[in-house]
Design a binder for these strands. Structure first.
Lengths: 160, 160
DNA sequence: GATTCGATCGGAGGGATAGTTA
DNA sequence: TCTAACTATCCCTCCGATCGAA
């Protein structure tokens, strides 16, 4: 453990990103800086890889659509550099991801596009839960995650 | 200035992003977190009283109804002993709170009752946002909070 | 009148599934 | 023709502003 001194506004910024009451500075920073507990050890535990699974309090008040968007938002934050890859995920006619609303709207009707929170990307949303799972699978596969980890995560993260 | 304690690996990570010899932790963090401007913010009293306001990350993914229920759930956890008082909050005909679904259903039509998460209490939900605010006001007044604190909290917690 | 209360109903959101296409 | 994958219609639930009743 180390002790550091920081300006008040930085401190306030950290507080503003608390996700659990009483969350430690370390925990907040770990999330904001996109650091897994990798440094400690690479664990195959799903909760280590997908650290948002450690926030059941947050998830239990969300429906599948909100979770879907939240997970994508997390993925963007964690893989800002690589995330653009996801625009290659698409159907026969519909685009699933895009940098702008119009691209999605033009690619189909009633696609129900939503912006991925805190990102410049948009997703379509008019899909069954099964399809949402496939889409998330594709996203995380592209980002380099293992199939077993992904499906384990989805089983926890999305309601049947 | 604030002092925080962080894990060694986070500290190492910060050191690894030093751009000048002897650069301060604050300076590194400011860069890594994308905060260029100094915007010192004073921590509010309201956030101390209603500590769930420190969880904007959670709240921003919720709609007013979910927030309404979440706040009631928080109030129950915090005042488990006194919470039963809230059943005295009611309209002319409708019951607003009860220990069971039926009481609420019988007291009106389409009251849209929901269980307050992790509590044995139920609330009606078919109300305008303004009415939801009044209900929360009444709850917290009964629980001994100050009117100014309550309305300050509501201004933050429920979307207009 | 003025104000509070109730609950109808329009609108949005969610997503299963029927229908279509490859 | 059959099957698998994809699309988007459409029903249902949820939300809560608004208007009529008290």
């Amino acid at each position: 453990m180390k002790t550091i001194v920081i300006d008040d506004d930085i401190y306030a910024h950290l507080l503003g990103h608390t996700q659990e009451i009483g969350e430690s500075a370390t925990s907040i920073l770990r999330r904001l800086l996109g650091l897994n507990t990798q440094s400690a050890r690479t664990s195959s535990d799903v909760q280590e890889t997908f650290d948002f699974l450690k926030l059941p309090e947050l998830f239990r008040h969300m429906n599948n659509s909100q979770r879907f968007l939240f997970i994508l938002s997390w993925a963007f934050r964690k893989h800002e550099k690589d995330f653009a890859k996801v625009v290659s995920i698409e159907g026969n006619r519909r685009k699933y991801f895009a940098r702008d609303l119009e691209t999605l709207q033009k690619s189909g009707s009633s696609v129900n596009p939503r912006q991925i929170p805190d990102s410049p990307f948009w997703v379509i949303t008019n899909n069954s839960t099964a399809k949402k799972c496939e889409m998330l699978s594709d996203v995380f596969r592209l980002l380099g995650y293992q199939p077993e980890d992904i499906s384990a995560m989805l089983r926890i993260a999305l309601r049947p």
